[in-house]
């Protein structure tokens, strides 16, 4: 199908993009487009305008500042796949296929916050920070604060995700995903990170309506047997995988991820 009619603007800068967003509440930012445009072609979404931020130089690039790696929001999955960013390089390789990875961006993926996307589990496990820009300035939120619900993040209308900050080094990290055989999205994807200070952080994506921390695993620590980590009643089911099965998969994936991370 064709999309409904829309106007296309190539933003000249972050402030230009924010100004356009402010003047048209029905507009959407366009990053890699591989979640947005299929939705528009099915006419499930019909924004009146698309503001293309994908090639803004200030949103690209991966750089290290001290013990933090700063990732520009428009960094593509492919760039991350071939980078040395802990855990995210491993996760990026599992997203879609090479063509999707050439276009899709980490900022777009995080802002979209699909319940089955891969990055959110890793972002939570890495204890990342997310920098958000608005016309009144910038703020930084924690990963825990960022993911709030199904397709719901801390981004308020008129705000834009500009950077992701992750630790430059960790003791160990792994992501294990059980993929839906059709969409290849996560049915249950578990990220486990052992941080430099020895602390353990773990999170799951795909099993519930948004990515969440695996607090039981974190409290049990690296010797956890990974059994009963989540309750099926906290998860979602569909005709491919019930909540009960997802809960079981979380245990299996967590066990594999933990074994590699520790």
């Amino acid at each position: 199908m064709y999309t409904s009619e829309f106007t296309y603007h190539k933003a000249s800068s972050v402030s230009d993009a924010l100004a356009q967003l402010a003047s048209n509440p029905d507009a959407k930012l366009l990053a890699g487009g591989h979640s947005l445009i299929p939705t528009m072609k099915l006419r499930l979404a019909s924004p009146s305008a698309l503001i293309d931020v994908s090639s803004l130089p200030e949103l690209r690039g991966i750089r290290t500042e001290g013990d933090t790696i700063i990732i520009g929001a428009m960094t593509t999955h492919r760039e991350l796949e071939f980078s040395k960013v802990p855990l995210l390089s491993e996760v990026a390789r599992l997203i879609g296929d090479p063509m999707v990875r050439n276009k899709g961006t980490i900022g777009g993926a995080l802002a979209h916050a699909d319940p089955s996307a891969d990055y959110p589990a890793a972002i939570l496990a890495l204890n990342a920070k997310i920098k958000i820009q608005s016309s009144s300035g910038a703020r930084v939120v924690t990963a825990d604060e960022f993911f709030q619900g199904m397709f719901t993040t801390a981004l308020a209308p008129g705000e834009m995700l500009v950077e992701i900050h992750v630790p430059a080094s960790v003791k160990g990290a792994a992501y294990e995903k059980f993929a839906h055989p059709a969409s290849r999205y996560a049915v249950a994807g578990v990220a486990v990170v052992v941080h430099s200070d020895g602390s353990l952080r773990a999170a799951v994506t795909g099993a519930g309506d948004h990515a969440m921390r695996l607090t039981k695993l974190e409290s049990e620590g690296v010797s956890s047997a990974c059994k009963g980590l989540v309750s099926a009643s906290d998860l979602m089911g569909d005709h491919f995988a019930s909540a009960e099965y997802r809960a079981h998969l979380v245990d299996v994936m967590a066990s594999k991820a933990l074994a590699r991370a520790k």
Binding site: S35, L36, T39, L44, A45, S46, H112, A113, D114, F151
Partner: peptide, 9 residues
């Protein structure tokens, strides 16, 4: 008007 992520109906 229901909005779930980018889907608006």
């Amino acid at each position: 008007e229901v909005a779930i992520g980018p889907v608006k109906g």
